[in-house]
Design a protein around this nucleic acid. Structure first.
Lengths: 345, 345
DNA sequence: GCTTAGCACTCTCTTTGTGAGAGTGCTAAA
DNA sequence: TTTAGCACTCTCACAAAGAGAGTGCTAAGC
């Protein structure tokens, strides 16, 4: 069931042509492009074999051939030779990234924009998993009587803050005590750990410690409790409008709906984070045939060997992998380097 | 040039029909709908007059008539009788709004989502003008050596925070002094005022006060300085896809591009905020013929008589004004009430 | 003088048909 | 095994024709 060298060559030409022109490829074109010096008729035979093996597809009896998912998979995994990023582009990207600001969320948003600009596609950047980043410190400041703001700063400049209602009798001095206690207790822990700990402690604290600690814990419980879903930064969503082929508006719509559903993206990305480094996934693989026309190039960014989150680009399945794969890879590395220096501080 | 009672009646029927069916309206249909007991031929005469006066438009010689902007303007301003919102809907909306959370940004996002859900269109909510909200307090907390987080809390729970780099020698004690100074100086001022003041003070402070105050001011300068554009919360952007008539994808695209351009929205909204209460604007009026197919219903939300920002919905020009105008109006009022209570606290 | 029935006319939209074009699959010969 | 040749298939673009909807105008009616 494996492919001969000749079949691979023909497949390569067809996939490349389809990437370039987004239209079915005919045998005559393949014959012209190929270095194999074969006639169109011979190409037709080879193409018939490839069709039988599931790598090509004919929209109708006598259009040209269109590569299937399987063909793209094969192409990306074994055929493709990635282009080198021009030095100047690399320099531009680095400069752009450095001036992203101090805050983690700004950096990710900026990265997503950068990817979108470089690819003319949708840029994606996903915030770190909550089990990945550790609390540096938590502060509680009184906004006014009965209202407190909790600011939690995590490694690398990740900041969460939340307004919390408190009893009126709580004084600023109390808050200092609370936060000292919480810092002592939770510094260096991840959110997941903290959440688990809080529940354990709360049961004991009420009896074993004084009420002050109990109140501090219940504040923390609220602060870390719910709603803080991880952010997904999508940029250039409108670019999908440029890729509506053959008036296939429903495919575009399907993608936009998928993108609106942030939790689906998180789920996907967490699955991908298991893999090493750069990875290409197709819509059919990660969602279903509805997204058959779309593909995702993604790569985790990491600090100290820990994969924190993922960045990538989403575009039509016939995107320019040879350019975009190194691009995403490079940006993920640059982001990792940038964060590495931030975390070291 | 004014319209007779009969012309108004015919115009009303045509606009209403166009809102209901989004298709050109013929004389026969008008004759059937009307209580005037006139024949289609008579209607044709009236419609010819209305066309001459610029209220109707014929896509081609013998399609029906389509209302022009002018007709919608007239309809909205003088003909329309707004429907009453069902009690149950009002209750639902109120409940939904109350559970939006404490933070201003969450409340606005929630409001925008609520409007989008109620209208099946795009929901818009724009944050308060910077000249409108007053600083309650600013806090500076040390994240680590050389890095400080500034948290500025404004009236009604508006929170801005920003990471700022500082010289390594700055101690937490210094920060307390800084923030005391800044609070004393700027409490109760708007951002615009603060920014102006900082510049004035900085010139004098360096000479007249000690260096500590100078440093505090330059921190504040950075904190309030740049980038904090007002947030625009757009929800349900995808809903515009439901309103592509006649394959007119370019009109939809035009709107989506407009919506991506947040500063254009801010500009528009600030213009609208001058008006009293609920207002309907059409794309041609606020942008140009490219957005001729779209309309905006908006209303400012206010606290203590001050118009802070604007909420509204964007949809096709033939949207159901009689339902949506009271809806937006009610939500703006509810939001105002909610904020009023928050500001009072 | 307003209203209306009647009718020719206009324009779009849909259907149908036709031809060109692109590309295939098969066969037979090299 | 390769290739030239050829019949065949299917789409696409275009034209022609008919249906349908609605108009504008005219002339008669109230």
């Amino acid at each position: 069931m494996s492919l001969t060298a000749r079949e691979i060559e023909v497949l390569r030409i067809i996939v490349q042509a389809y990437i370039d022109h987004a239209a079915p490829v005919g045998s005559r074109y393949v014959a012209k492009q190929s270095t194999l010096k074969l006639s169109a008729a011979s190409m037709r035979n080879i193409m018939a074999d490839l069709t039988e093996k599931g790598y090509l597809h004919q929209p109708y009896t006598s259009a040209g051939r269109v590569p299937t998912d399987k063909a793209f998979r094969f192409y990306v995994d074994t055929v493709l030779s990635p282009a080198l990023l021009p030095e100047s582009t690399q320099k531009d990207m680095k400069e752009s990234l450095v001036q992203a600001g101090l805050e983690f969320s700004d950096i990710l948003e900026h990265t997503s924009k950068l990817i979108s600009a470089q690819s003319s596609q949708v840029g994606v950047a996903v915030a770190p998993k909550r089990s990945m980043i550790r609390l540096q410190r938590i502060d509680l400041i009184q906004v006014r009587t009965g209202l407190v703001m909790a600011i939690a700063v995590f490694d690398g400049g990740v900041v969460h803050n939340k307004l919390l209602p408190v009893e009126a009798k709580v004084t600023p001095d109390d808050l200092v005590k609370y936060s000292n206690y919480l810092n002592e207790k939770f510094q260096g822990r991840t959110i997941d750990e903290i959440k688990k700990n809080i529940l354990q402690e709360m049961e004991q604290a009420e009896t074993r410690f004084n009420a002050l600690y109990g109140r501090a814990l219940s504040l923390a419980h609220e602060a870390f409790g719910s709603n803080n879903d991880r952010e997904v930064y999508l940029e250039g969503t409108l670019n999908v409008l440029d890729h509506i082929e053959g008036k296939d508006i429903s495919s575009m719509r399907e993608l936009l709906e998928f993108l609106e559903h942030r939790s689906a993206i998180l789920e996907l990305v967490d699955k991908l984070a298991h893999n090493e480094g750069l990875i290409v996934t197709f819509g059919t693989e990660f969602y279903g045939p509805e997204l058959g026309q779309w593909g995702l190039i993604s790569s985790p960014y990491q600090v100290q060997g820990q994969k924190l989150g993922v960045v990538g680009t989403i575009g039509p399945i016939h995107m320019d992998y040879s350019r975009l794969m190194p691009m995403v890879d490079t940006i993920a590395r640059m982001l990792s380097d940038l964060l590495e220096s931030r975390f070291a501080e």
